[in-house]
Write a protein that binds this DNA or RNA. Structure first.
Lengths: 184, 184
DNA sequence: GCCGTATGAATGAAAG
DNA sequence: CTTTCATTCATACGGC
């Protein structure tokens, strides 16, 4: 069904040869839901990869503010993004036991029953299985390849304050995001 | 971003030839996305018609495993299938909601101003026409036109256990799907 | 060959 | 946090 329903903002879904993603939901457009630009996603992913999982209200505010440079965005978008990303990442990683499909029909196995666990076993490539909480110490950024300051979450359990200055790979058109993640 | 890429080509429709999409153009259908066989769709539809709407992880596994007999399939396919089917059923149902828009231009609701500091606070749900939890008694399946043994959720508050043995119309080349839906 | 539709897959938003 | 709902994106397939 191709019904527009009610003339909501659609980001030109007609042409299916290009992801009209960048800069679509910027100004003026009255969209029903936030559609992150590639830059926004990139930044968010970067933060996530750096270890940010559940940003505080304050951090959300900062991130949102920063991302607004790339397009329309609200705090709640950031909030939801992290919530969803975290959940789905875990979901994906939750490849418990079951190695479904093949011709292993009838296995009668009732052992190990992941009860409440939803599933979603998208097979991502055998990539990193590591879940190290990588943070960026307050002053060791600049040309970070973001790999060396990895440390486990429980290793930095102290009154420390980290700052993460996000420098979008090749994009540096505005003041860097300066997030301080304090653990107390 | 799509980090999944779904760059896997495992359709392998050639592995099993005793099935086939009822006259599908049988194009290479290399990789990309799951393309259910008619048998698979039939079975899934049967289950849906029988009342299954949101299978648990365990049920999904069983279904997937069973359907793998008819062709390549993964758990997530089953998961998505039910999600989509349910959503589109509802969506379709919803299209007929407003009889006409000629005389009455009723605005659903407009009394919410998100002035709250909290993020998660959008529009209240449109109408919780929540479906009646329809189940299927232990063995009353087999005849078409399976009307709904609808009963409201709070009417079946007891430790009941239902089992649904799916018997594909004319296909019975392997153990029947034995799903047990327990509600407590 | 394009185009319209059906539907698999993904994800934002929200409820529980 | 977990699970579900809604909307959108992408693609297979059939008609023309």
């Amino acid at each position: 069904m191709e019904e527009s329903m009610s003339g909501f903002c659609m980001k030109s879904s007609g042409s299916s040869n290009f992801h009209g993603k960048s800069g679509s939901s910027s100004t003026g457009t009255k969209c029903g839901r936030w559609n992150p630009t590639t830059e926004q996603v990139k930044l968010l992913t970067e933060l996530f990869r750096a270890g940010l999982r559940t940003p505080s209200t304050d951090q959300i505010q900062k991130i949102s503010n920063q991302l607004s440079f790339y397009g329309k965005i609200e705090s709640k978008n950031v909030f939801y993004w992290f919530q969803n990303h975290k959940a789905r990442e875990r979901q994906k990683r939750r490849k418990v036991s079951f190695d479904d499909d093949k011709d292993v029909i009838v296995h009668r196995d009732n052992s190990m029953n992941a009860s409440t666990q939803r599933f979603a076993e998208m097979y991502s490539e055998p990539d990193r299985v590591i879940e190290t909480l990588e943070l960026f110490p307050l002053n060791s950024f600049g040309e970070s390849e973001s790999e060396k300051w990895s440390m486990h979450a429980n290793e930095c359990r102290e009154n420390t304050m980290f700052a993460y200055t996000c420098t979008m790979g090749e994009q540096m058109e505005h003041p860097p995001l300066d997030l301080r993640l304090s653990f107390v």
